[in-house]
Amino acid sequence: MGLNIILLFKYVPNTNTVNVDPNTGTLVREGVPSVVNPHDLDAAELALELREKYGGKITAMIMAPPNAMKGIEFLMGMGVDEGVLITDRAYGGADTLATSYVLAAGIRTIEHYDLIITGQETLDSSTAHIGAQLASWLKLPYVYYVTEASLNDGTLIVKRQLESYTEKYRVKLPALITVLMHSHQPRPVTLENKLRAVIKKPIKMLTNNDLKLNIMCTGLRGSPTVVAKTEFIAKIPRKKEILKDKSPQETAAWLLSKLKEEGFLN
């Protein structure tokens, strides 16, 4: 028994700093290392908590170039059991549609799964498409912005957080959920888990030889998304003023007058 969970993730450039070359106006990408998409770490944490409660197995899966192996190793360091790396030149340059198409095929190679978990969205593109698209490909019930999940009588009870209220759903398994960003605190990696990842390497590679997809539907060729134009938005200089040692009343009056001056208030 137990839950067989598939954890989908993306390996993204660490964009905590997005730098623009002041001379060319282009993004500086040189040497930017990749990390597991931080929002997928929320999903990983939830998956690990579920496995702790109900037993089972977590398989991390990604469609990416081979360097994403390091991302699987990181997740295994947190406690994920095994990994599947789907990699093929024919899958390069994919938009979300072509990506979810390949991921669906990858998921179908897994004999039995109960739950697919992934993050709300990615750090580098923030489309939040993959969950919905995959649920469509696989015809699975789908809940997004999930903050909590538990099992009850073989069904999944999930809470999802919307702007001002919480919803609670009962979902049949297998199901697909995406986890609300910042809803979980990802656990640190452990030595034992990392050792297992590095030495045992329980990571399976899948290429198009395995999935046998029509390459007109994968990669750049299978991607209908067209980036029409990107615009460089210049940095807005910050206006900083500090008011010190005044009474709350004086401070409030000062702040109000400043906000009016800047046109934020009438």
Partner: peptide
Amino acid sequence: MSAAEQRLEDILNNDIWDVDPN
């Protein structure tokens, strides 16, 4: 950009971190 002195926060902006929540 000229060689005028930059502010520390602009200098640090060129670095990359994966900030530990703890």
